[in-house]
């Protein structure tokens, strides 16, 4: 199955990455090489095999529903690009 420029642009849109025409062309050439490698996977019969999501087949732990961290808003917002009065600022979404 051959990857197309539209596939690259669609993935870039889904990934929220701006990509111009030259970048899309370059990405297509390189991703085509990478998917050539990945296609090796299709040669193997995997019927009846359970997917392995993780290195250890462990259940995730549950913890008590308790507050464990105090308020660190000022500290965490100190590294934000734009804040005002404790709020993160973004372009207007709702007209």
């Amino acid at each position: 199955m051959a990857l197309t420029l539209d596939d690259v642009r669609r993935a870039a849109h889904l990934a929220r990455i701006a990509i111009d025409d030259a970048e899309a062309e370059a990405a297509l050439a390189q991703l085509t090489r990478v998917f050539g490698l990945i296609e090796d996977m299709q040669a193997v019969d995997v019927s009846g095999i359970e997917p392995m999501a993780h290195a250890q087949d462990l259940m995730l732990r549950l913890r008590n529903d308790l507050v464990t961290e105090g308020d660190q808003r000022n500290l965490f917002q100190s590294v934000a690009p734009e804040v005002d009065a404790g709020l993160y600022l973004v372009p207007k979404v709702i007209e």
Binding site: V79, P81, V90, P91
Partner: peptide
């Protein structure tokens, strides 16, 4: 939004995400 690079210019929220990440 919360940390990391933000593009200097953008038209809307979607454009801000895309340019910042691009």
């Amino acid at each position: 939004v919360r940390y990391g690079h933000r593009a200097a210019e953008y038209t809307d929220l979607l454009d801000m995400y895309k340019r910042s990440r691009g």
